[in-house]
């Protein structure tokens, strides 16, 4: 906070911003760096440049199976949570309902309760009901938090556009359903795409819930966790981890760009 005291000098604060970005991005860059290094030890000095860990990663059946499991969970979770989030956001932004504020807090709760506590709560109830742990249980565990994120994204999207467009459509004789499809949906489509991409990324990368609720089919984060204990297994995990980081960076960058386009930020940013 002392730094902002010196605010008028653009230089100092700008320099800080650069350091801050380096702090955020720097550590993560060591993963791709060592994934290209021809040594099982993750340390300096660097040896030869190699792609062999990437080849090894793609040849590992268990690794590929867990990657596929994560996709199998992530895709339906993204679709369902985005549908639920969009419906709920429409209800909250467009209808006068009693008890709206406490309802919102309730729907956002999954974002605040520590993941480990949600995980064991679900584990206990699933165990008592007598359901076997599987990819299904992981998917169910991912839904509340993903839906809450989707709701959050869709509310800001729905609040962001001119409501009189919908009213005009209704006044001109379209019914509520057609108004949604022909007016509202095209306008919130960027938000929908952003929500799909972000909820998929969250589910795909989620560890702690899957850690408690995985059966004998691990998702990718669970598989990577199990490999972290064996130093010899690390380089292929680094290779795949690097690919995932790069893929999610690209995915999320597009999602954020979609999401924030056309909202209030645009006017001040000139993008």
């Amino acid at each position: 906070m002392t730094l902002s005291g010196k605010a008028p000098k653009i230089g100092g604060l700008g320099l800080y911003a650069v350091f801050y970005l380096a702090f955020i991005y720097g550590p993560v860059l060591f993963l791709p760096l060592f994934s290209l290094n021809d040594s099982t030890f993750i340390s300096f000095p660097l040896k030869e440049f190699t792609f062999k860990w990437y080849v090894e990663a793609f040849q590992s059946e268990r690794l590929m199976a867990s990657l596929f499991n994560s996709v199998k969970v992530g895709v339906p979770v993204a679709i369902i949570s985005t549908i639920l989030g969009t419906l709920a956001a429409k209800a909250i932004t467009r209808y006068r309902m009693p008890g709206k504020t406490p309802m919102m807090s309730f729907l956002m709760a999954p974002l605040v309760v520590p993941g480990i506590i949600v995980g064991i709560a679900l584990l206990i109830i699933i165990n008592r009901v007598g359901i076997d742990l599987s990819l299904w249980t992981i998917g169910i565990a991912h839904l509340p938090a993903c839906t809450a994120f989707s709701l959050w994204i869709m509310i800001s999207r729905l609040e962001g556009f001119d409501r009189s467009l919908e009213e005009a459509s209704l006044n001109l004789g379209e019914n509520a359903w057609m108004t949604f499809w022909r007016v509202t949906f095209p306008l919130i489509l960027p938000g929908v795409i952003a929500s799909l991409l972000l909820t998929f990324t969250i589910s795909f990368d989620e560890f702690i819930l899957a850690f408690f609720l995985a059966g004998n089919e691990p998702t990718l984060p669970i598989f990577m966790w199990s490999q972290l204990r064996f130093p010899a297994q690390l380089p292929p995990v680094l290779a795949l981890g690097s690919l995932i980081l790069i893929a999610s960076f690209v995915l999320v960058y597009f999602a954020e760009w979609f999401r924030r386009r056309g909202t209030h930020l645009e006017s001040s940013s000139g993008v």
């Binding site: 993560v28 993963l31 972000l198 990368d205 984060p221 980081l245 999320v252 960058y253 954020e256």
Partner: peptide, 13 residues
């Protein structure tokens, strides 16, 4: 976006 992107990516990694 630059600030928020890392937050969405793998916590474990």
């Amino acid at each position: 976006i630059l600030i928020t992107v890392p937050f969405w990516t793998s916590y474990l990694l």
